[in-house]
Amino acid sequence: MAFLIVVPIAAGAAIVARKRRSARAGDGGHRHVVTVYRPLPELESAPLPGSLKEIADRVEVQLRAAPGDRGTEIAVRIPEGSDVTSGEVRRALRETRSLLEAGDVLLPYGPATTVPTLWNRPLQAATRRGREGGLL
């Protein structure tokens, strides 16, 4: 039982710690990058879709062809002074990739079958921001 409590808390703490480290390091130096399995000319021919479009004027976006016919790399850098967070960029990149590749962004299951408890609060907090965390 202790494992059930400790590990989600530890995972949540790790995510928070990573966010804080990222914030302290200054997001200006770190690019968030995804590879989208679509050719570069296709991405250059139209504005990028989804939530990346919404933050595009507050971040620097670069496109380049991925090696090995793997599509296009989308790199986003948050400039000094921008109010955009790394979490917003991660979410935007993931949603944009999904829109470009699959034509849609998968929504979480619903309606929920779970009930909130004291023990699952850390996990619920983590999953509420499931596309904003991680290493991207």
């Binding site: 995510i15 699959a102 596309r131 290493l135």
Partner: peptide, 16 residues
């Protein structure tokens, strides 16, 4: 790449 709505958990644990 597009089938998991909570990628942050396993990305943090396993890298991807």
């Amino acid at each position: 790449d597009n089938g998991n709505t909570n990628p942050a958990i396993t990305e943090t644990l396993w890298g991807q």
